[in-house]
């Protein structure tokens, strides 16, 4: 299958796995609630970055746009984790 060899398919598979791990594993009592929550939000930020860079093609975009979008992921993830931990 040519489809399965595409890099974007690998990205999709990673995104699916990360979603399954967050939703049906990390959210259960395998780790403490605080560790689990922070890990889930960091994974979500990581997933958003993957979508931006590989699906939205920011990988090849002008630096200014990459900075703006990258800043969004960083600020939103840090803000959520920050208010949660505060």
């Amino acid at each position: 299958m040519e489809l399965l060899r595409k890099p974007v398919t690998v990205v999709w598979a990673v995104l699916m796995l990360a979603t399954v791990a967050s939703t049906w594993w990390l959210s259960k009592d395998v780790v403490s609630p605080v560790v689990g929550t922070v890990a889930i939000m960091v994974i979500a930020g990581f997933k958003v970055r993957l979508v931006m860079w590989h699906f939205m093609e920011l990988r090849d975009a002008p630096v200014a746009w990459r900075c703006v979008q990258g800043a969004w992921v960083f600020l939103v993830t840090a803000m959520i984790a920050g208010i949660y931990l505060a």
């Binding site: 939703t23 990390l26 689990g36 889930i40 939000m41 979500a44 958003v48 939103v76 949660y84």
Partner: peptide
């Protein structure tokens, strides 16, 4: 639309 849901879903459903 996809990436907003990726962030919104854990925020509402999973943050304990």
């Amino acid at each position: 639309v996809d990436l907003l849901w990726v962030m919104l879903f854990p925020l509402l459903y999973l943050v304990r």
